[in-house]
Amino acid sequence: MKLRTVLGAALAAGLGWLLFAPTRVRPVAWEGPGLPPSRTSGPYADNGRLNTAELLAPVPGLKAPESVAVDAQGRLYSGFEGGAVVRFQPDGTAPEVFADTGGRPLGLRFHPDGNLLIADALRGLLRVGPEGSVQVLATGAEGVPFRFTDDLDVDRAGRFVYFTDASSRYGWPHELLDLLEHGGHGRVLRHDLHTGETVVLARGLNFPNGVTLGPDEAYLLVTETGTARVHRLWLAGERAGTLEVFADSLPGYPDNVRFDGAGTFWVALPSRRSPLLDAGARQPWLRRVIARIAERAHLPLPEESMLVALDLKGRPVAFAQGSGSASYSYITQVLPVGDALILSSLHGQTLARVPLAQVRP
């Protein structure tokens, strides 16, 4: 009887903690992304096309290459946890530390002049010279400091850098807290390399993540991880400054996006959508309960190997999914290079490569 009383008290205390313990997360109710696409039929059906992937050379002591960029010589660059930017030879061998940002390098792009531009989650918008020197370009806009500088693109003229601050409230690596709150803390920005001015192009987004310029640089695609959507932000024409949904109801939470210059946008989907998060969209109390746990313990999202290719109208024209020990999971970027796709991952030890024909038969 005494044991039963003790267990009952412990259970009541645990339940009370889940329901009433303090938390900094203030969830906002929203409509949710709708039912997830079918896994057995339709454009997002499981197909095993990513069941195998070729790993590039290992990088001892480093992990989590989040993004990848290629220079004029075909060499590959990626930013790792801890701040290192590693350079691989075009064939994926001989990795060497090229630079160290002292932060957490996420999105990478090469400027037309050969300098490497980096969205560093901790340090802001950076420029790295050919010899590896690091220069800070911007750390805030409109008096609000960047908390989670995420991804970027640069125009062909080399003047404007478009990038995201995924959350002005929750810094790296607390993206799950931002997703749970759904408070619209993300911004899309533009930095003028000539004048040094940084302006906000869009605000109120829920973890805006990857960005890429579209054809003729008339618009910018922005992945919004918190809603499983891709948006189009018009930069030119009569719709300039307007934001519209480009692709909706994706099977996973989108990360980086890259345009191949030939009519296809490649979107990385590191995690399949969580039924619990979907169900909790209109239930702030439920997400508050999850947040109390997430603030104190690591709660992984449903991890899987997934990527999708979208055409110029936002329609899926290729989807690849995989599982098993030979797959490359939690893909955060897909970069077309020749007849292959170079993949990066927050859970990987190095980059990976899959033949384009394997993904898009």
Score class of each variant (00 low, 15 high):
209 N>S: 08
140 G>M: 05
150 D>K: 06
101 T>A: 11
169 R>Y: 02
70 V>Q: 13
116 L>P: 07
123 R>H: 05
146 F>S: 06
84 A>L: 10
198 T>I: 00
135 Q>R: 14
186 G>E: 04
151 D>V: 08
203 R>D: 15
126 L>S: 08
143 G>K: 04
73 Q>H: 15
140 G>I: 06
195 T>N: 05
78 S>K: 08
185 H>M: 05
134 V>D: 03
130 P>C: 00
87 R>M: 13
184 G>R: 05
92 G>Y: 11
106 L>E: 15
135 Q>I: 02
193 L>G: 10
91 D>F: 09
113 D>V: 04
92 G>E: 12
81 E>G: 15
109 R>Y: 06
169 R>G: 01
133 S>F: 02
207 F>A: 09
190 R>D: 05
145 P>T: 11
82 G>E: 14
114 G>S: 07
112 P>D: 10
132 G>E: 07
119 A>P: 13
102 G>A: 04
190 R>A: 15
173 P>K: 07
153 D>P: 00
126 L>V: 06
137 L>E: 06
90 P>K: 10
176 L>Y: 01
164 T>C: 02
162 Y>C: 00
137 L>D: 05
188 V>C: 11
126 L>C: 06
170 Y>K: 01
160 F>L: 13
115 N>S: 14
77 Y>K: 13
205 L>S: 04
168 S>E: 13
205 L>Q: 09
192 D>C: 02
87 R>N: 01
70 V>M: 10
154 V>C: 06
137 L>C: 06
92 G>T: 12
168 S>M: 11
91 D>T: 10
109 R>S: 13
165 D>Q: 06
139 T>N: 01
157 A>T: 10
141 A>C: 14
178 D>C: 02
105 P>A: 07
173 P>S: 10
107 G>A: 08
135 Q>A: 14
108 L>Y: 09
112 P>Q: 11
161 V>L: 02
89 Q>N: 15
178 D>R: 03
176 L>M: 03
83 G>H: 14
162 Y>D: 01
110 F>P: 07
96 E>A: 15
83 G>S: 13
188 V>M: 11
127 R>K: 15
146 F>Q: 07
171 G>E: 01
170 Y>S: 00
84 A>I: 09
187 R>L: 05
186 G>A: 03
162 Y>L: 00
141 A>F: 01
93 T>K: 14
206 N>T: 05
158 G>E: 05
131 E>M: 02
186 G>N: 04
